[in-house]
């Protein structure tokens, strides 16, 4: 049976991991490839690199990162962060990335999703959605934000997910802006709303603070994978231990 996935996420700026880590047995905690390789050995099912570099060399540094990861990793990895052109996607895939994650650019130009899916296949096109709860009574609603969560777009996040999948996105990386960084757990309602609306895998992101948070978003909200950063980076939990926990909760995982 298809297994549920645990995906550590690394934020990278000019080729270096941004958030600190306190792994003790790592030579260079700022090297994304070395850190990723450690996660591979710990049992991570995939890795996501989010490149937040703001310089105009960004594109080259991302391709270089993909090339280095492809040399060192033996699990699939995704690279995202400000990708807006088909040529950039092509360069990242040619360098060895298994998937690319698109976020802001398709909100401006949704055709980017179909262009990439037609050329490279849906399996390598991940749509990342940064969603924020819309205040108000009644049925909960979420708005999709662009530019790293700074720009409201007026788009309903669930409708946007449905449109993106219709255009060829093979997977949705769904981040709750309300929960991101809180350690209060994933937004179960948001995850359930998107995962029941689309027929592609949904990766839950934003809010993981303990292992039960990972279990509940899979069991109660239908997530196919869980993405987490800080609970792994700061050494609170190993991926291996998270796998054991999920397994004990009856969730099929690779161990």
């Amino acid at each position: 049976m298809l297994l549920k996935r645990i995906i550590p996420c690394l934020d990278v700026d000019r080729g270096r991991v941004v958030k600190g880590t306190n792994f003790v047995d790592i030579r260079d905690a700022g090297d994304p490839v070395e850190l990723a390789s450690k996660y591979d050995q710990e049992g991570a099912d995939e890795l996501v690199f989010l490149d937040i570099t703001a310089t105009h060399e960004k594109r080259d540094t991302m391709v270089e990162l993909a090339r280095r990861c492809a040399e060192e990793l033996f699990v699939p990895f995704t690279i995202g962060g400000g990708i807006s052109e088909v040529d950039h996607v092509r360069a990242l895939l040619a360098a060895g990335a298994d998937k690319v994650s698109l976020n802001s650019a398709p909100l401006r130009d949704p055709v980017l999703i179909s262009s990439c899916a037609e050329r490279f296949g849906s399996q390598c096109v991940v749509l990342a959605i940064d969603a924020k709860r819309v205040p108000g009574e009644g049925e909960p609603r979420w708005e999709a934000y662009a530019n790293g969560g700074r720009l409201p777009t007026g788009r309903d996040a669930v409708e946007w997910a449905v449109e993106a999948v219709g255009r060829g996105a093979g997977e949705i990386l769904l981040t709750s802006m309300d929960r991101d960084g809180t350690k209060d757990g994933y937004d179960l309602e948001l995850t359930a709303a998107v995962s029941s609306a689309v027929n592609v895998p949904v990766i839950a992101s934003g809010g993981a603070g303990n292992l039960e948070h990972l279990a509940e978003v899979i069991l109660r909200a239908g997530a196919d994978a869980v993405l987490a950063a800080s609970i792994f980076h700061f050494g609170e939990f190993t991926v291996h231990r998270a796998k054991d926990y999920l397994y004990a909760r009856g969730i099929p995982v690779r161990r």
């Binding site: 049976m1 298809l2 297994l3 996935r5 099912d45 093979g170 196919d224």
Partner: peptide, 8 residues
């Protein structure tokens, strides 16, 4: 779901 993608 097609493609079949992931760990199995």
């Amino acid at each position: 779901k097609v493609p079949h993608m992931g760990w199995n």
